[in-house]
Design a protein around this nucleic acid. Structure first.
Lengths: 185, 185
DNA sequence: CCGGAAACGGAGCGGCCGTTCCGCTGTGGG
DNA sequence: CCCACAGCGGAACGGCCGCTCCGTTTCCGG
């Protein structure tokens, strides 16, 4: 299969993925396919030969980074300090959002693009559940705060992705702080 | 001028505005012009005769409601309780967002659509400044919170407008509560 | 009640986007 | 070294959108 293809084909595939990663991160998921092809220095047909639909390209590009999120989530689960674990997850989420407009959509957005990440999304949701449960048990959360509040806060941060890049990093940081302050007891 | 036009023209204009108001509120500002025309029961040309560009239609539809926001803002300025005034503004903003996806964009969004509301935006910003100043002076705000934090919170709420309508109202309410809790001392 | 101007509606234009088609290019096994 | 065929690029298709053009309908003053 993969080892049957020509060397130049494999090389071009890599260029496409790299261009798409960069384009999605900096300009968001709506970058036209033509633009990705142009950045990669290939024709659109080459792009479509490796990724039959736009969705598959997006899924491929996000897959690596989504895995990375899972790693960080598991690390948070090992943290003995419940507040540090939860606030770290929120901060990392916000940080990620600043230099990658696309990623968080895969974890929280309405399935549109990322039906491919069902499993990862479930894992992420479950881990968040655990973290919130611990934080609550430790009494570090404001009364009445539940996991849906945390998810709403993350969703709000993720929704800021459409803002112009110059202002978004400032705003995202402030919102993250606001959310954390609103969660804490 | 306006009284020179035919009765049927005026009637159709009203139908267009009504259709656009409803469409924008329920489906957001990106509703196609054809769709607005269809809902109004007129041809696209009729729509364009009354509103030469899409932007003018949007501005016309939002103008009435933006005025309404100004009224509420002035009412908040009269409130002797600084926290009630500020939190009321945030809550009203969130409430508005729930049954009108378009409106808040005019007040906060990046100029795109609403260069027409420069003055209102400035007034809104200034009023918010006053409200935050008072709240701060009264000591009801968490340390370090400033106007930009409040604006960031509002921006986060406004950014939720793209969520599917079924979930958005729940999420918006939670985020509003989170933001308020995060602002308060 | 009639005629001309105001207003109408929908086909059509140009542009963007995802995706496909096809004639050419250049790789690499024999 | 050579030529079959994997792989290539870009033109082209179909669909959506903002906006315009123009033949037809409808209003309304005389």
């Amino acid at each position: 299969m993969s080892q049957m293809q020509r060397a130049d084909a494999r090389f071009n595939r890599d260029r496409v993925v790299a261009a798409a990663r960069e384009a999605f991160a900096s300009a968001g998921l709506e970058v036209p396919m033509r633009e990705v092809a142009r950045r990669a220095g290939v024709g659109v047909a080459t792009l479509y030969r490796h990724f039959p639909t736009r969705t598959e390209l997006v899924a491929t590009v996000l897959a690596e980074r989504v895995d990375d999120c899972g790693v960080r989530m598991r690390r948070a689960l090992d943290d003995p300090d419940p507040w540090r674990a939860l606030s770290g997850v929120v901060r990392e989420f916000a940080e990620r959002q600043i230099h990658d407009r696309a990623l968080n959509e895969a974890l929280l957005g309405p399935g549109e693009v990322s039906a491919a990440f069902q499993r990862e999304r479930r894992e992420h949701a479950q881990a968040l559940n655990v973290l919130v449960g611990r934080a609550r048990a430790a009494g570090v959360l404001r009364d009445g705060v539940d996991v849906d509040d945390v998810r709403a806060g993350l969703l709000a941060i993720a929704s800021l992705r459409r803002l112009p890049a110059t202002t978004s990093s400032r705003v995202i940081g402030r919102v993250a702080d606001l959310v954390l302050a609103g969660l804490r007891a």
